[in-house]
Design a protein around this nucleic acid. Structure first.
Lengths: 252, 252
DNA sequence: CCAAAAGTGTTAGCATTACACCCATGC
DNA sequence: GCATGGGTGTAATGCTAACACTTTTGG
C-alpha cells in the first residue's frame, strides 16, 4: 500500500562526502519538461538534492532518515535539521509540471525542511548511490540546481564549516584510518583556507585524540605516510575547564 | 475577512529582552480546560510562547513577523529561524481541546517552526506587551510552559549564547547608550559565567567598537559610570584577515 | 565618614604564527 | 639519482588569566 504524501511539506537532504581531496555532495538526476515560448515542451535533465514529500503521520526527521537510507543504504548516520525554506517563489513554472507528473501535486505552496548529513565515502556506498541515479558532485563545481536547492546547499556548506571549526566532525567524513595529510586537505577544502603543515600537525597531534596505527601507506612514490585513527573516547572524556573571555570571538 | 489558517504549520516566537540585570523572555497567558480523572473539566491557566498557525498563502517568515508585530508593535526586528519541532507527541490531550476551542483544529499533527528574536526593552514596548496579556519573565525562573515550548525556549537560549559569543549582538538587547557594567552583566547572564571586570574592559574597549559618550550616570550613590554606544560602522568595516589555525576550537 | 560601584596595570603562561630542511620511497 | 610528498623544531608575538587598590559619588 502506497503511503499518503503530505502535499505541503517536503524534506531535502544535503549529503556530504570527502574523497581525500575534495568535498562531494550527493545529487540526483531529474527529468522535466521545459515549456518553450512557442508553447512546445522539451525534455530536459538537471540535478537536485535527494528529497521527497513527507508521508502523512510520519515524523519529519523519520522522513529525512528514510530518504537518506533509500539513497545510501545507511541507517545510523548523523542527520541535522538545517532550516525551513518557504519562499513562495521557490517553485518555478517548470518545477510545477515536474511536481505534478511525479507526485500529482498541483500546488506551489510546498515548504521544504532541509537536513544535512556527513558520510564516509566507500566503494559500497558509491555503487549503491550509482544504482539510484545519484552522483557525487564536487561541491566547488556545482553550478545550477533545481528549485532553490543551490541556496539549500550553500546553507548546508556554511553549517558544515562552522561545525568543522568547532567540533571533531572531520572524522565522520574520513575513513576510519587516515593520514594527517588527508585530514589537512579536508580542513583546507571545507574552510577554504591554506594551513601550514607543521603548525597543523603540532595542533592536531598535540590534541591527544589521534592514535598512530601500526600501518603506513603502501606503493606511493615518496615516504609513506603514517595512518592514524580518531580516539573519540579520549575526546569525550575531556573536561570542559576552558577559557572564559575566549567566549567572545567576534572575528573568527 | 478572516484569513484561512493552515492547520498543519504553526509559528512560535521566542522573544528575548534584557533589563540591565537579567535575561527576559516574552510569554503569553493561556486559559485551557484540564480534564480530570472523574471526567469533569477544570479551568486552568498557564503560559506559552507567542505563536499562531500560519495563514494559507502567507510566507512562513511573514507569519513570524506578523506575530512579533502584534505582540510588540515592532516592525524592523531581527528574527531568525531556529528549528522545526515536529515530534508527533508534542501536543498533549489538554492542548488538543485548547486548539479546538481557539482555532477549531481537530488534529494533533501540527509542526511548529520556531523563530527567535532580540529586542531592546523600553517602557513603550513593556506597556504594549502588557496590553496583550503578555509578560516578560525571567528566563532563569521559567519552569513549565505549554506544549513543547520549554524545549523551544532551551533551543533558543543555546542559539543566543552561541551568537553572543561570536557576534556583536549584545547591543541589540541593550539600550543605545549603556555602561560597561550593563554589558558585562548581559554576558554573564546569558553565558552563565563570571567575568573579571578588568579583563572584560580591556577586551571590550580594546576592540575599538565602543565609543564613549559625553554623558555619565546621574543620581547614583557611587562613582557614576560612563555611557558608551556601539559603533556598528567601525565593526562592519573590519577586515577579515584573522587567525587561521584558530579555526579549530573543539573545546570552546 | 561610610558604603557602593567605577575604574585602572602588571606579570606569567600559553597558543599561534612564520619559516627551511632532511627523509623514505618508487621509478 | 631524482622526483615526490612525509615529517620535524625554534623563536617572536599576542592573547588570556590572575590579581588589589584608588576614585567618585550620595546619604
Amino acid at each position: 500500500m502506497v503511503p499518503v504524501k503530505n502535499p505541503s511539506i517536503s524534506v531535502d537532504c544535503v549529503v556530504f562526502g570527502f574523497d581525500g581531496t575534495s568535498l562531494k555532495v550527493l545529487l540526483v538526476k531529474r527529468g522535466y519538461r521545459e515549456r518553450q515560448p512557442d508553447g512546445q515542451t522539451v525534455l530536459r535533465e538537471d540535478v537536485k538534492l535527494p528529497g521527497s514529500p513527507i508521508y502523512q503521520d510520519e515524523d519529519v526527521s523519520s522522513s529525512a532518515y528514510r530518504i537518506l537510507e533509500e539513497m545510501t543504504n545507511l541507517k545510523q548516520v548523523y542527520l541535522k535539521q538545517l532550516q525551513v525554506f518557504s519562499d513562495p517563489d521557490r517553485i518555478g513554472d517548470d518545477d510545477l509540471g515536474w511536481l505534478n507528473e511525479t507526485y500529482g501535486f498541483e500546488t506551489r505552496r510546498i515548504i521544504s525542511i532541509a537536513y544535512y548529513s556527513r558520510v564516509k565515502l566507500s566503494p559500497k556506498i558509491i555503487s549503491h548511490t550509482a544504482m539510484r541515479r545519484a552522483e557525487w558532485h564536487d561541491v566547488q563545481s556545482v553550478k545550477r540546481l533545481a528549485l532553490d536547492h543551490k541556496a539549500i546547499l550553500m546553507t548546508a556548506l556554511k553549517t558544515l564549516s562552522t561545525q568543522l571549526a568547532n567540533e571533531p566532525i572531520a572524522f565522520e567524513l574520513l575513513p576510519r584510518k587516515f593520514t594527517i595529510r588527508q585530514l589537512q586537505n579536508l580542513y583546507e577544502a571545507i574552510l577554504g583556507i591554506e594551513i601550514d603543515n607543521r603548525n597543523f600537525r603540532k595542533k592536531i597531534l598535540g590534541s591527544g585524540y589521534l592514535e598512530p596505527l601500526q600501518e603506513r601507506e603502501k606503493g606511493v612514490a615518496h615516504k609513506p605516510a603514517q595512518y592514524y585513527q580518531f580516539n573519540r573516547h579520549a575526546y569525550e572524556r575531556e573536561t570542559r575547564l576552558k577559557s572564559k573571555l575566549n567566549f567572545i570571538n567576534w572575528h573568527d
